[in-house]
Design a protein around this nucleic acid. Structure first.
Lengths: 337, 337
DNA sequence: GAGACCTCTGGGAGCGCTCCCACTGGAAGC
DNA sequence: GCTTCCAGTGGGAGCGCTCCCAGAGGTCTC
């Protein structure tokens, strides 16, 4: 039972004094370090309990040069990108893994210039032990910052350009290929792709998977119909497809949000899914399951992505040199295709 | 142009030496404090640039007793609660407001016992300057922790029980009342409520609003059909209603997720919305807009909720004593009712 | 021209912890 | 009985910053 104690926090010195030992011994006892006799260890524990002592995180961080904090940075032009439930899942995964390593999660939405400057400061001011970077676009300034910092950086998804040293990514090309192959195997021959922003790694990879599969099947891929991973952009892309390629009988959408948007446009246009047009999404977020009709989609292990990123970061912080990771995807067949 | 500098971080002492001033002067110059001559101030600025100096966050925190960190704690039995897009919006709001105050956002998903213990440690170890608490259930251990800590705590939504000292909440009773009144005004007389968990403040408040409105209209409220704020639970609740109260012609769902779940069940049961049964939700998240039919719902300013919580916390941290806040809601009429 | 009152300045004492190191004394080895 | 070793101990020097304070030198008053 920790006694209720005055508001003033007690310090290690007070613990040491109450326990009748030196600060060094108290510190060692606290950290389960060796070279402390059983008696003194117990005395310290008693004192800790009596005083309700909790070590000051900041002081410890200063002395150990470890903050105990891992930052998750979500880049993007405007903060609404964060509304994508994808990130919530990543966070759940990362949070769990960090908890095991006793690290705290700092969340940075680097939307504005101000936000990016704060991230840069974080990188340089030792405000965290390491950083996980997500949703980077081509030429994102954060990429350069990541290269220049001495802080461990793990990428969530490879950005456009040379692959970073450490990353965790899903097999986007493979997943998109499988989705397209599935559409083709169901007899669809005029398959279009509603792809995500092509200045992102995911956007390009998923379009490439689609393209590869089409070519391999001897079909001609359509040019990318670009969206920005949101539902409305998917709806708009589908509308554009209906105008420009009315003969389309299958659609591969680069994520579920856009897939659901496509479904909405098709419904409004009086097209039936999957009879007239089959639709496949990507991600397998909750929205795919509750869509009407339920969306066939490529599942990627989103929580695992977060978890693996965190693991990789922990390894880096501990001085190891982990290898990049590509997580498998798998097709989930539902009613939409 | 900051020169590229060795990996070793430079310190304030080095800046001072290079600038030919004392550490005190350098510190003052850095913090825009008075009592620094123009010449020395510029010398310091030059040295800072040459060395690429960035003050060490931790050391500063130790000296000032300010961490520059605000924590957002999301409580709940399992982390999946965080999948609710509601939190993403809160975070966007809070993040923006904290950015203005130059605070960093720490995110704690306090799902497990371990997670709660970590929050407790955070509260006691001065790991943050203040805390925002959300999604608390009746008798949540975090409520007691919040009372006992010396750290500023702002509640997002009032938990069941006595109202905390500082909170930001939406007008849940008023919003639910308005939603129900609207259903009644459209001629619905057998209105049911799919309510959220009744061990949460929101859950109770929204059911109360429904109940008040029904009684005020001279109608008999149905007993609460409880869900847990998720889509499946809404679908299940709707299914139960169809069995137990097949005569129902209107449904107030305590949030959009459950409202969308209800829509799904109704669709599967062959009931048309709104002709057979009208449905109203609560929150006005993206899911309501893209539902089929689009969901009439009670809009609450979710981002503003986050923003206001952050503002309140900043005020507390700065020694002010802000007053609790209740944000207005407003009915958004769409096709489902 | 003495006192009051500025602005600048740098020394130094923290903030609360970790960790190196020198020291003690008892057990082990020969 | 001597050295050798090592578990146990506490002193003290950081970690990198802020901020109090005493002091220097200048301006302004009357």
């Amino acid at each position: 039972m920790a006694e209720d104690v005055a508001r003033r926090r007690s310090t290690l010195d007070e613990v040491a004094e109450l326990a009748g030992v030196s600060r060094s011994v108290a510190s060692r006892a606290l950290n389960n370090a060796p070279h402390v006799s059983r008696a003194k260890r117990e005395a310290v524990e008693r004192a800790v309990r009596r005083l309700g002592y909790v070590p000051n995180t900041t002081a410890r961080a200063l002395a150990t040069r470890r903050t105990g904090v891992a930052a998750l940075v979500v880049s993007g032009e405007d903060p609404s990108i964060f509304a994508d439930p994808f990130f919530a899942q990543v966070i759940v995964g990362a949070s769990g893994a960090l908890e095991e390593a006793d690290l705290h999660l700092m969340l940075c939405l680097a939307a504005s210039d101000r936000g990016r400057r704060r991230v840069e400061d974080l990188l340089r001011s030792r405000g965290a032990d390491g950083v996980m970077l997500m949703a980077l676009r081509e030429n994102d300034p954060l990429i350069r910052m990541a290269e220049e910092t001495a802080m461990p950086v793990v990428f969530g998804g490879r950005p456009v350009g040379p692959a970073p040293r450490w990353y965790v990514d899903a097999d986007n090309v493979g997943g998109a290929r499988e989705a397209t192959e599935y559409l083709v195997s169901r007899g669809r021959t005029r398959v279009a792709a509603i792809c995500g922003r092509l200045d992102t790694g995911v956007g390009r990879a998923r379009y490439r998977g689609y393209r590869d599969a089409m070519l391999a099947a001897g079909l001609s891929p359509l040019p990318p119909q670009e969206g920005d991973f949101t539902e409305p952009s998917g709806a708009a892309a589908m509308a554009a497809l209906l105008v420009n390629h009315p003969e389309v009988d299958g659609v591969f959408a680069a994520n579920d949000n856009m897939g659901v948007g496509a479904l909405r446009t098709l419904r409004e246009a009086g097209r039936t899914v999957p009879d007239d047009i089959a639709v496949v999404g990507f991600d397998d977020l909750a929205v795919a399951r509750v869509a009407d009709p339920p969306l066939t989609t490529v599942q990627q292990p989103v929580q695992a992505l977060g978890r693996k990123m965190a693991h990789m970061l922990v390894a880096l912080v501990n001085g190891q040199d982990p290898t990049p990771l590509i997580l498998p995807t798998r097709l989930i067949v539902r009613a939409s295709a």
